[in-house]
């Protein structure tokens, strides 16, 4: 589903990522772990072609990201839903309108949009809050809305960049349950986090990055990231 082959990303002389290689299979749930500034967000940006690698190749659902033409990028982004720590909701749009945004871009008619958005809001338990504006809902609800927006095009992959970073522990677990639920429905989830409270209690595959280098992948012979780091 996603493959990184010797990927490096440099900003001037600074190496944000260096020689990263890994593969993610369909329906996997991956934790991308590492401290702040390790390169997790850069890696996610490369997957959605928000940036291009300085070296190496990245394949997402068979598409070579580096050689993708500009007009093909929107098609990639419709296949990959994104969720952010700061939710990135449009403040002047209601919850319903925020979730319907990607469908409007596709040019669906109002009736279809209503049907799909209601289904998606129901999936994240936000139907009741559909008419509320982002400032009228809690952080957890805002993140559930952001997940609904990422889900509404039924993407095969969801990238979540520190989705629990701004939430209290209770809300963070709600979000984790939601992401697990989506994963169980067949969606590939790549979640970047530095929160060990969250990752410690779950058995999902963990890819650890430090200072731009891949220092651990729990898929490989059951190796735990920390032990790889000590090598």
């Amino acid at each position: 589903m996603i493959a990184f082959r010797d990927v490096s990303k440099n900003y001037n002389s600074h190496a944000a990522l260096a020689d990263i290689s890994f593969e993610i299979s369909p329906s996997e749930f991956i934790f991308l772990v590492g401290p702040s500034g390790a390169g997790k967000s850069t890696l996610l940006k490369l997957i959605i072609r928000d940036d291009i690698p300085s070296k190496g190749s990245i394949f997402v659902d068979g598409m070579d990201i580096a050689t993708l033409r500009a007009h093909e990028v929107p098609h990639l982004r419709r296949k990959v839903g994104t969720v952010f720590q700061d939710f990135k909701l449009l403040p002047q749009r209601t919850v319903f309108e925020n979730v319907s945004f990607p469908l409007e871009i596709l040019g669906l008619d109002d009736e279809e949009i209503k049907k799909v958005v209601e289904e998606t809001l129901s999936l994240v338990n936000m139907v009741e809050k559909g008419t509320n504006f982002p400032h009228e809902i809690s952080g957890g609800e805002a993140q559930r809305t952001a997940i609904a927006r990422a889900m509404v095009l039924r993407p095969e992959i969801i990238l979540a960049d520190e989705p629990t970073g701004n939430l209290d522990l209770g809300s963070a677990w709600e979000i984790m349950q939601l992401l697990n639920k989506l994963n169980s429905l067949g969606t590939t989830i790549v979640m970047a986090t530095h929160n060990t409270d969250i990752t410690g209690g779950l058995t999902h595959r963990k890819i650890e990055i430090q200072k731009g280098r891949l220092v651990g992948d729990s898929k490989e012979k059951g190796t735990k990231p920390k032990s790889v780091k000590k090598k």
Binding site: I48, D50, A70, H71, P74, H75, L76, R77, R78, T82, K88, L90, F101, P102, I105, L106, R149, L153
Partner: peptide, 9 residues
Amino acid sequence: IMRLVGATS
């Protein structure tokens, strides 16, 4: 946000 959800240029 438009870019991220797949809006064309």
